[in-house]
Design a protein around this nucleic acid. Structure first.
Lengths: 195, 195
DNA sequence: CTTAAAAGCAATTAACCAATTGCTTTTTCG
DNA sequence: CGAAAAAGCAATTGGTTAATTGCTTTTAAG
């Protein structure tokens, strides 16, 4: 046996994310992934049923990390506005470390071809939006946000701001530090939220 | 001869945009485009040198329309804030009428594979941002925006808001009217801009 | 009406790619 | 140790696709 099943699966997932960042989805072939991992192309299929199953595992791994960020936030004893600020900082920091994320998750291939993968990506998106909306709601009653704020609508736009910023970062070939945008984003955002 | 060169080219461009919306980029083959237009697959290559040349023409067509919206705005005698508001309305309205736009322009394929197509998409993006920044600058001196506004930085975030909203619309299978988001977007945006 | 150019198509090609098969090697565990 | 199970690979398969070729039909200009 080579390496254990779980380790190989994780290697394949990471190789896939890295290759997505470097070469885009067209060249993201099982051959390319296998070469990056250092195994033969058919060996990929000892660990994943199909190519889509690899993508599914990648999305699952990304989801796990994003949700972990959201959960860590729950346990912090801070006012709602400071927790929202941290949420933005940390999600951008996580995305900034994994360039493959926008290339894969914003790809039309997942959205149109595979209903399961589309659903998985949507769930990530909707859980982030729901968390932001909950923070806005909480902060509104605490008095740290405007009282006439629509939490749902505002959460959608904050999500759009994050996604749009990540998309620009990807479009500009990752030519700036995504993490550094968090502070500027908050400066832009705060006047709309404050009481 | 069938139809004239220019008419066929335009038919191919529109078929490509429509198919991008319906089926995504993977199934956007020369065969599929030809079927939609009603010609044989090799005939495509009488009108375009390569598949990428088709994409280039599509992007060119989109750019033309977007720039026309920007130019029309120049001639309107309105305060800067109202012109910015109209810019958002009209760009979202245009995108809302052409579902293929996000599928094609946000695709990684253009960004990674073809340097020319990537440059073309970036130019569209940067001209919109530059226009927004100019409007913000103008409005700041006119007194209809905050005086401590950073026009460049703010323009980037307004662009991110638009792109993020269009991305959500695409991700949700165009399940809401994009044009209707413009008003809510402005409501969200105004508190950050007003003096 | 004539003819050259443009537009069209059927058939083919070369390249690419996900997935399968059949066999060998390595690891795990009783 | 020894055998079952897991992991590995070379070779191949079947399907897909952009682009070419060679030929025919249609259009437009003189």
């Amino acid at each position: 046996m080579g390496k254990s099943h779980d380790i190989r699966r994780q290697e394949i997932v990471e190789a896939t994310l890295d290759l997505a960042a470097e070469q885009g989805l067209k060249k993201l072939t099982t051959q390319a992934i296998a070469e990056r991992v250092g195994i033969a192309q058919p060996t990929i299929f000892r660990h994943f049923k199909s190519r889509d199953a690899i993508f599914g595992a990648v999305i699952g791994w990304v989801a796990e990390n994003i949700f972990r960020v959201l959960e860590q936030l729950e346990s912090e004893q801070l006012a709602a506005d400071q927790r929202l600020r941290r949420l933005l900082q940390r999600q951008l920091a996580f995305a900034g470390r994994r360039r493959g994320i926008p290339r894969l998750l914003f790809s039309d291939r997942l959205h149109v071809e595979s209903p399961e993968l589309k659903a998985a990506v949507r769930e990530i998106y909707q859980r982030i939006i729901a968390r932001i909306a909950a923070l806005l709601q909480e902060g509104r009653t605490q008095g740290c946000f405007r009282s006439d704020l629509d939490p749902e609508q505002t959460a959608l736009f904050i999500g759009a701001l994050m996604q749009g910023t990540i998309l620009r970062w990807s479009m500009m070939d990752f030519g700036f530090e995504l993490e550094d945008e968090a502070e500027a984003l908050w400066t832009f955002l705060w006047p709309t939220l404050r009481p």
